[in-house]
Amino acid sequence: MSSDRLNLREEYQKRQIQEILDQLDKDLVGLVPVKTRLKEVAALLLVHRLRKSLGLTSSNPNLHMSFTGSPGTGKTTVALKMADVLFRLGYIRKGHLVTVTRDDLVGQYIGHTAPKTKEVLKRAMGGVLFIDEAYYLYKPDNERDYGSEAIEILLQVMENQRDDLVIIFAGYKERMDEFYESNPGLSSRVANHIDFPDYSPEELLIIAKQMVEEQQYRLTDESANVLLDYIKIRKEYPHFANARSVRNAIDRARMRQANRMFNAGNKVLTKADLVTIQPEDILKSRLFTGQD
């Protein structure tokens, strides 16, 4: 390969980016728009890196991001993969992810916020800082709130140390939109906005089957149908958290399964008994019974 010619696919494979994207595809059901966007970002960064190697001038791309969507839609998992991509392409030194919320950044009295925020930033340097429910940093109705101080420190770092730290702000889309409208300086520094769609009931059933299998349990066909009905009903209730709510439902089904076997008295249990979640273990949920 001559000094002024580069094979993009070869570089892509050498950096093992496809390996990360393949793993993400395996780890997360659905989310096609998110996976497509992640691939686009990876391609942009690789092309920028190759341009730089050929002496073509261009400013470093703005890597700060916004992940919007409901809880349980894979935002933290994708953030981990993004950190890996950025590390393999040489955009961050360490490739680790530090996940925080408002409580980790904002103090409760004068002089408390700056040290807290700076300590978090120190831990995150060389990697990615993931701020979940970032809109809680800003409370315009409370004059004594110190969240704005944390935002000011973040703004300085986003501008002055963007080659050594990537910040991802995450939360519900509507509230994040309001957050950016209230903080134009912040909005202008976030270039990549990725929206995470809610999972369909069928996608959540696939996720549920994966969770059950990981825990060395199994669903019968009838149990799977009942669980799908449960998911469809639960999605209409408040505070539904996608994969997180499904995990909670499975945990409760396992508890009911254990109680069912415990109450069976002297019955000799087989391996099949111990690993199988029966329809009744799901049907006893308060969503079906109106109690519990």
Rank of each mutant, 00 (worst) to 15 (best):
G185C: 01
V190P: 02
F196M: 02
N192L: 15
D251A: 14
I17H: 02
V85N: 07
R234S: 11
N266L: 09
E174K: 15
I131E: 02
L121Q: 04
P115T: 07
I92G: 05
K209M: 03
L154N: 09
Y237L: 14
M1S: 14
Y230Q: 04
Q210D: 11
D25C: 00
Q23S: 11
D177R: 13
N7Q: 09
A114G: 04
Q23A: 12
D104P: 00
V47Y: 11
A114R: 11
L186T: 07
K122W: 00
R218T: 13
E159I: 03
L46W: 10
L219K: 05
L46K: 10
A208F: 04
S187P: 00
R37E: 13
R102L: 01
F262A: 15
T57P: 07
H48A: 12
G147T: 07
M255L: 15
K39D: 05
L21A: 07
L283A: 05
D103H: 08
K271E: 15
E149W: 03
G107P: 08
K235A: 11
L6Y: 12
E213K: 14
L54G: 08
G290N: 08
D164W: 03
T270L: 01
R244T: 11
F288T: 04
Y136V: 01
A272H: 07
D164H: 14
K39Y: 08
T276F: 10
E174F: 06
E213V: 00
I131C: 00
A150H: 09
G69R: 13
D103V: 12
V212P: 06
D229M: 02
D251H: 15
P238R: 12
Q161G: 00
G290S: 07
R252I: 11
A224V: 07
I206T: 14
Y91W: 13
G265C: 06
E222W: 03
D103T: 13
R260V: 03
N259F: 15
E119P: 00
K81E: 07
E11G: 02
D141Y: 12
Y138M: 04
Y199T: 04
R15K: 14
L8G: 03
K35V: 01
I282T: 07
P71A: 15
H239F: 12
F179A: 01
V34N: 05
L155Q: 13
A191Y: 04
L97P: 01
G171E: 09
A83R: 06
L129W: 10
A79G: 10
D177S: 10
G171C: 02
Y230E: 04
I168K: 08
R162H: 09
D273K: 05
V106I: 08
R218A: 07
M82E: 09
L154W: 10
P33A: 13
K139H: 11
K26M: 03
S53T: 14
L219Y: 10
Q156V: 03
N242L: 06
I20M: 04
A249C: 14
M1E: 10
R102Q: 10
T76C: 10
Y217L: 15
R37Y: 05
N60Q: 12
P238V: 03
G147I: 01
G74I: 08
E181R: 13
V34S: 02
R218W: 00
I131L: 05
T270Q: 06
E152H: 06
P33I: 08
R162I: 00
R175M: 08
